[in-house]
Design a binder for these strands. Sequence first.
DNA 1: AGCACA
Length: 469
Amino acid sequence: MSTSGQQQFRYTQTPSKVLHLRNLPWDCSDEELVELCKPFGKIVNTKCNVGANRNQAFVEFADLNQAINMVSYYASSSEPAQVRGKTVYIQYSNRNEIVNNKSPGDVPGNVLLVTIEGVEAGDVSIDVIHLVFSAFGFVQKIATFEKAAGFQALIQFSDVGTASAAREALDGRSIPKYLLPEHVNHCHLRISYSAHTDLNIKFQSHRSRDYTNPYLPVNPTAMEGLLQPVVGPDGKKKEPESNVLFASLENMQYAVTIDVLHTVFSAFGTVQKIAIFEKNGQTQALIQYPDVTTAAAAKDALEGHCIYDGGYCKLHLSYSRHTDLNVQAYSDKSRDYTVPESSLLAMQQASAVHATPPVWHNPQSGPQSFGYAAAAAVPGQASTSQMSSWNPNLQGGGSTFPSTPTRFPGQSYASPVSAYATAVNPPGSSQQTNHIVSSGRSYSVSQPPHPSTMPPGGVPPPGHAPYHG
DNA sequence: AGCACA
């Protein structure tokens, strides 16, 4: 050819993990593209209905070799690639990745991420979820969990087609009222695709099921949620006592830091661990004592009291299901006071930014993003490598403790999927007096571990001298 | 049947 500087179409294309497909049906769907291409590799993105006739599309594989596989397969196949009987012409794209504004959740897969809006985790049982989604085909696995986005479930079907049918039918719809507790008014399902292809379910429990493996062991601690609630003398539900307190903070006008909580709760005994997290825009915390008695004393004394004067940061306390928190030893969201001081010091120095908090940006900027929390509730989640292709915010350090299955909202396993869980939330630059007040009566907290966050001159709370573990 | 601007 004399046109040496001209781009030749057919023979000069260099391989790309993006393929250009032509002669598709004008209304070809992402799912049809995936069905055609997935035998050759993992599809990470698609763009269909491209061009004036809407009959072109792009498909991006995770790996270049997968795209090469597909092109070379159909180059030598006697059966052409087809969608609905139409021959599809496949070439390497002249771009190296698909650029569109499609979020990862729009890339079809066999696993759905379902956010159940307007309910607490206890309102919708895994059996109800199973029932609803089984209408579209065999549900292989379910994992549920709570994150900032609310109550969520990963639902695994055997194939993309079934998953997309369920998504089409149920996205934006509600779970029938008769399947829900009476107090639930609305319950919308928001459904996107998960990047997972195979959930790693370790136990049958109230939050996860593997219907392909009925002999999977039942996790006794994870099944606690199925036990009948303890009923008190007044006939009302009463949670079993625990050495771990669950605190929800109302009227969060000012920042409540780990140090503030530690000071407040240390008045009643050694505080072993603390974690702060946000759920549905509400600040919550877990405080772990060595024993139930201490926790009960703290609960009785602090319930309904406010950390700051003026009704700010009012504490509501209940017993947690947890008995041993699995927290990062030293972060702005959690603290483990049981780790040896030497290693803690090392960690403090490693992250000096936590030790002497400067004035950081505004903490009141809405709920913390816990991101796309997919795998967080699946212990030992194995398919993390698949997620990393689109997760923009891998967790630095990943210093969670993978050995213990204990978990709580906001706390993640080492999975990078839940990377957002440690989003920076600055310790309080608040100049508030650190009082516990109750209907006019107030008392100050003494011996603040970080004097910079609290004013001097407090008097000890009645009865107990604070001590620190 | 021949490369997208969301």
